[in-house]
Protein backbone atom coordinates (compact mmCIF):
# COMPACT_ATOMS: atom_id res chain seq x y z
CA UNK A 1 0.00 0.00 0.00
CA UNK A 2 1.33 3.37 -0.85
CA UNK A 3 2.04 5.83 1.92
CA UNK A 4 -0.49 8.30 0.41
CA UNK A 5 -3.43 6.42 1.90
CA UNK A 6 -1.99 6.62 5.40
CA UNK A 7 -1.34 10.33 4.99
CA UNK A 8 -4.85 11.01 3.69
CA UNK A 9 -6.29 9.08 6.63
CA UNK A 10 -4.10 11.03 9.02
CA UNK A 11 -5.29 14.32 7.46
CA UNK A 12 -8.93 13.30 7.73
CA UNK A 13 -8.52 12.26 11.36
CA UNK A 14 -6.63 15.48 12.19
CA UNK A 15 -9.29 17.64 10.53
CA UNK A 16 -12.06 15.79 12.35
CA UNK A 17 -10.20 16.34 15.62
CA UNK A 18 -9.65 20.05 14.91
CA UNK A 19 -13.31 20.57 14.03
CA UNK A 20 -14.26 18.71 17.18
CA UNK A 21 -12.07 21.03 19.30
CA UNK A 22 -13.60 24.06 17.65
CA UNK A 23 -17.27 23.18 17.65
CA UNK A 24 -17.90 20.96 20.70
CA UNK A 25 -18.64 22.51 24.04
CA UNK A 26 -18.27 19.53 26.33
CA UNK A 27 -14.80 19.53 27.77
CA UNK A 28 -14.54 15.72 27.70
CA UNK A 29 -15.41 15.63 24.00
CA UNK A 30 -12.95 18.42 23.26
CA UNK A 31 -10.37 16.38 25.07
CA UNK A 32 -11.14 13.32 23.01
CA UNK A 33 -10.85 15.42 19.85
CA UNK A 34 -7.39 16.55 20.97
CA UNK A 35 -6.44 12.88 21.40
CA UNK A 36 -7.72 12.26 17.90
CA UNK A 37 -5.46 14.99 16.53
CA UNK A 38 -2.47 13.57 18.42
CA UNK A 39 -3.10 10.11 17.11
CA UNK A 40 -3.49 11.45 13.55
CA UNK A 41 -0.02 12.89 13.76
CA UNK A 42 1.26 9.65 15.30
CA UNK A 43 -0.12 7.84 12.28
CA UNK A 44 1.64 10.24 9.92
CA UNK A 45 4.92 9.81 11.83
CA UNK A 46 4.76 6.05 11.72
CA UNK A 47 3.80 6.04 8.02
CA UNK A 48 6.72 8.26 7.11
CA UNK A 49 9.03 6.11 9.28
CA UNK A 50 8.01 3.08 7.30
CA UNK A 51 8.47 4.93 4.04
CA UNK A 52 11.99 6.07 4.98
CA UNK A 53 12.91 2.75 6.50
CA UNK A 54 14.20 4.07 9.81
CA UNK A 55 12.86 4.27 13.37
CA UNK A 56 12.95 8.04 13.98
CA UNK A 57 9.24 8.59 13.37
CA UNK A 58 8.27 5.62 15.51
CA UNK A 59 10.34 6.93 18.39
CA UNK A 60 8.63 10.30 18.09
CA UNK A 61 5.27 8.53 18.12
CA UNK A 62 6.16 6.93 21.46
CA UNK A 63 7.10 10.32 22.82
CA UNK A 64 3.79 11.74 21.70
CA UNK A 65 1.94 8.93 23.45
CA UNK A 66 3.81 9.55 26.69
CA UNK A 67 3.13 13.29 26.50
CA UNK A 68 -0.53 12.59 25.67
CA UNK A 69 -0.84 10.33 28.70
CA UNK A 70 0.66 13.01 30.95
CA UNK A 71 -1.60 15.60 29.41
CA UNK A 72 -4.65 13.52 30.04
CA UNK A 73 -3.74 13.26 33.69
CA UNK A 74 -3.44 17.02 34.10
CA UNK A 75 -6.35 17.84 31.79
CA UNK A 76 -8.83 15.47 33.40
CA UNK A 77 -7.84 16.74 36.82
CA UNK A 78 -8.65 20.30 35.68
CA UNK A 79 -11.95 19.23 34.16
CA UNK A 80 -12.97 17.42 37.34
CA UNK A 81 -12.08 20.45 39.46
CA UNK A 82 -13.98 22.82 37.18
CA UNK A 83 -16.96 20.46 37.23
CA UNK A 84 -16.93 20.44 41.01
CA UNK A 85 -17.08 24.18 41.30
CA UNK A 86 -19.40 24.92 38.40
CA UNK A 87 -21.50 21.81 38.07
CA UNK A 88 -20.84 21.80 34.33
CA UNK A 89 -18.21 20.47 31.99
CA UNK A 90 -18.79 23.16 29.38
CA UNK A 91 -15.56 24.61 28.07
CA UNK A 92 -17.17 28.05 27.59
CA UNK A 93 -18.16 28.29 31.23
CA UNK A 94 -14.76 29.16 32.76
CA UNK A 95 -14.06 32.42 30.94
CA UNK A 96 -13.04 34.72 33.80
CA UNK A 97 -9.38 34.89 32.81
CA UNK A 98 -9.63 37.52 30.10
CA UNK A 99 -8.83 41.14 29.24
Amino acid sequence: MSVDNYIILACVLFTLGAIGVLVRRNAIVVFMSVELMLNATNLAFVAFARMNGNLDGQVIAFFVMVVAAAEVVVGLAIIVTVYRSRRSASIDEPNLLKY
Binding site: A18, L22, D92, P94, N95, K98, Y99
Partner: peptide, 17 residues
Protein backbone atom coordinates in the same frame (compact mmCIF):
# COMPACT_ATOMS: atom_id res chain seq x y z
CA UNK B 1 -5.58 44.21 20.81
CA UNK B 2 -6.40 42.95 24.28
CA UNK B 3 -9.99 42.38 23.16
CA UNK B 4 -8.60 39.22 21.59
CA UNK B 5 -8.17 37.80 25.07
CA UNK B 6 -11.85 36.87 25.32
CA UNK B 7 -11.48 34.13 27.90
CA UNK B 8 -13.11 31.50 25.63
CA UNK B 9 -10.72 28.60 25.16
CA UNK B 10 -12.30 27.71 21.84
CA UNK B 11 -11.60 31.10 20.34
CA UNK B 12 -7.93 30.61 21.25
CA UNK B 13 -8.08 27.25 19.54
CA UNK B 14 -9.58 28.87 16.45
CA UNK B 15 -6.73 31.42 16.45
CA UNK B 16 -4.19 28.63 16.69
CA UNK B 17 -5.79 26.74 13.84
Amino acid sequence: LRRLQSGFARSYALLMV
